[in-house]
Computed example of a mutant assay.
Amino acid sequence: MERTSTRRGLAALTAATALLAAGAASAHPHMWIDARAAIEVDADKRITAVRQVWLFDEMFGAYATQGMKKGRDGSLRPDALEGMARDWMTALGEPISHYFTRVTVDGKMAAFAAPRDARVDWNPKTTRLTLSFTLPLAQPLALGADGAQVDIYDPTYFVAYAFDAKGAVSLAGPQAAACTTAYRKPKELDWKTMQQLAEIPADPDALPDELFAITKGLTHRIEVRCP
């Protein structure tokens, strides 16, 4: 069930942006995202939301905007960007796809309320699209003895994330200074696995079970602690 729903969410996202229809090349991953995340902490040191910024790669930007009416400077109409943001958030909003984001405490996953502040920005000079959004938790989440874990990843490895920029992981809110974060990169893939993934076509359903068992562990984890 988890894998099927994740695939549906990916299919909807790529359909909304016309990436696959434009004939993306084979090889997993098919999208690259430079990501940023800010964890909101309230006055009682509870997690209340996860703010994210996803900067898509240039090829994705070119495909996603193909055929769209642009200004002389390459700009896109505001209503086109607003529509793109709505489509993407709808596609990402399937309960099991869960916006490719998980917040857990003591092994229990928190539920999100409806996302807010979703917007898409387009840079015609770099041909890169940016999706920004906030995921509020349905209820403020008190941290456990081991803190909380925020995982951002695509288990099918259709999308590859990177949190390499300075300050890509941060805390926000009235008790941000009282808490700490630790960012854990996913493990490196071996050469054989990378070669196998490179032969997979642009279809989440094409990922064999033995490779899915590996890629679903490629988690970008943010550990939050508030003493």
Rank of each mutant, 00 (worst) to 15 (best):
M1F: 15
E2M: 12
E2F: 12
E2L: 12
R3A: 07
R3S: 09
G9N: 01
L13H: 09
A15V: 04
T17P: 02
L20A: 13
A21S: 14
G23D: 08
A24H: 11
S26Y: 05
S26M: 09
A27T: 09
M31C: 06
I33K: 01
A35W: 04
D44K: 11
I47R: 01
T48I: 01
A49W: 04
R51M: 01
R51H: 13
V53T: 15
D57Q: 02
E58D: 14
F60K: 00
Y63C: 08
A64F: 02
G67V: 10
M68W: 13
M68Q: 11
K69C: 10
K70G: 06
R72P: 15
S75G: 12
L76C: 00
R77I: 02
P78Y: 09
A80V: 14
M84K: 04
M84C: 00
R86G: 11
D87N: 14
D87Q: 12
W88T: 02
L92V: 03
E94L: 13
I96G: 08
H98K: 14
H98G: 13
T101C: 13
V103T: 03
T104I: 04
G107R: 05
A111I: 00
A114P: 05
R116I: 12
R119I: 07
D121M: 09
D121L: 12
N123V: 07
F133S: 07
F133R: 01
T134Q: 11
L135A: 08
P140L: 00
G144R: 01
G147M: 00
A148K: 02
Q149P: 00
Q149S: 14
Y153K: 00
D154T: 03
P155M: 05
P155K: 07
P155C: 05
T156V: 12
F158P: 04
A160P: 03
Y161I: 00
A162D: 14
F163I: 08
D164W: 07
A165N: 08
K166G: 11
K166H: 12
K166S: 12
V169M: 05
S170R: 11
G173K: 09
P174I: 01
Q175G: 10
A176I: 06
C179N: 05
A182N: 11
K185Y: 05
K187W: 01
K187M: 10
W191E: 15
K192W: 10
Q195S: 14
P201Y: 07
A202V: 11
D203M: 04
D203T: 09
A206K: 08
A206H: 00
L207C: 09
K216H: 13
L218K: 06
R225A: 12
